[in-house]
């Protein structure tokens, strides 16, 4: 039992992102309102961003900047002390992507609202079926 608990706790960042992923997926599949679905999609994307950021973390790690050593006065790059910057950089791109996706999704939602006067999926389907 203790093993399981320690396993769960030691990988808590993974559990967090999986839970977020599932919340996002749930909203995308189950919710009736299109905006809620879009929010779910955003949560889904954010979960993955979180995952990436969390894997770069290092205990006692610091920013990957060159520091002037107060003792010797030299510039030193101590790679062992830095957290991994690459996932952050990658996620910068991913954030841009998710913002763009959100933008298009909302734009389409506006178009849909203009067309059907509603954002509830079942009402839209009802209107489509009527025609």
């Amino acid at each position: 039992m203790e093993d399981v608990i320690s396993f769960v706790i030691s990988k808590y960042n993974y559990w967090c992102y999986i839970v977020l992923l599932m919340i996002g997926l749930y909203a995308m599949i189950v919710k009736n309102n299109l905006v809620k679905k879009i929010i779910g999609m955003n949560i889904f994307q954010t979960a993955i961003i979180l995952f990436y950021v969390s894997i770069s973390v290092k205990k006692e790690g610091t920013l990957p900047t060159i520091i002037i050593d107060p003792v010797t006065g030299t510039h030193t790059a101590r790679a062992a002390d830095y957290i991994n910057p690459l996932p952050h950089v990658l996620m910068l791109t991913a954030i841009v992507v998710s913002v763009a996706t959100l933008g298009i999704a909302l734009a389409l939602a506006i178009k849909i609202y203009k067309e059907y006067d509603t954002l509830e999926e079942d009402e839209i389907f009802a209107q489509i079926r009527k025609k």
Binding site: M28, M41, I48, F51, I55, L108, I112, I124
Partner: peptide, 23 residues
């Protein structure tokens, strides 16, 4: 627009899965 929005949802899931795998 509605069809495209559905595509966004599924397309995003697909792309995110790929991203996760790359991670």
């Amino acid at each position: 627009p509605l069809a495209s929005l559905n595509y966004i949802f599924l397309g995003t899931i697909g792309a995110c899965f790929y991203l996760l795998g790359v991670g």
